[in-house]
């Protein structure tokens, strides 16, 4: 129960920072998407049906704060989660470098899924130009955020190990 509440708090804080604090200081493609970081973490270290449900719900929450297409991020987050669960069994999931790489790739995958779904189902001409232009900076900034956020606890753990 405590873990669940902690997760809710983390998601809430991440969302709040993402939609209110960061836009005031950081220009558009360079705002990190913290929810992708959480999905990547869930995909690598979580598991089970509740992990899939969490990824889907996180996507729905993201859709409530972004764009007008409810379900778009929910689908992409779920897809990313499922792919990560598939490959996580053969990876050393505690590695910081892997986490950074996964976040980078997940951001690219998320963008491409968005692009595909928007092109097929939405009337948003020219969205590909904006999306593709912002995708790489977004992936890089998310990777940077992942290295900072996931790197600090691992440093602490290393200190403890010493």
């Amino acid at each position: 129960m405590t873990k669940f509440l902690k997760t809710i708090m983390v998601v809430y804080a991440a969302l709040l920072v993402q939609v209110t604090v960061l836009p005031a200081y950081i220009a558009d493609p360079f705002k990190p998407n913290f929810l992708i970081l959480i999905v990547a973490c869930l995909g690598l270290r979580g598991g089970g049906w509740h992990g899939a449900l969490s990824a889907f719900l996180l996507g729905l929450v993201a859709d409530c704060f972004s764009g007008i297409y409810l379900g778009l991020s929910a689908f992409s987050f779920l897809a990313i989660y499922l792919v990560l669960r598939r490959v996580a069994v053969s990876l050393y999931t505690d590695s910081l470098y892997l986490m950074v790489l996964v976040v980078f790739t997940a951001t690219l995958g998320n963008g491409l899924i968005h692009l595909l779904l928007l092109l097929i189902f939405a009337v948003a001409d020219g969205v590909y130009a904006t999306l593709l232009a912002g995708l790489l900076p977004q992936a890089l900034i998310n990777a940077l955020a992942a290295s900072l956020l996931f790197g600090i606890p691992s440093l602490g753990a290393r200190e403890e190990a010493r």
Binding site: L35, S66, T130
Partner: peptide, 14 residues
């Protein structure tokens, strides 16, 4: 205005 879009490719405000 109390918030902006969470994604870089959509343009909405709250």
């Amino acid at each position: 205005v109390i918030g902006e879009d969470g994604s870089p490719w959509f343009k909405t405000i709250v």
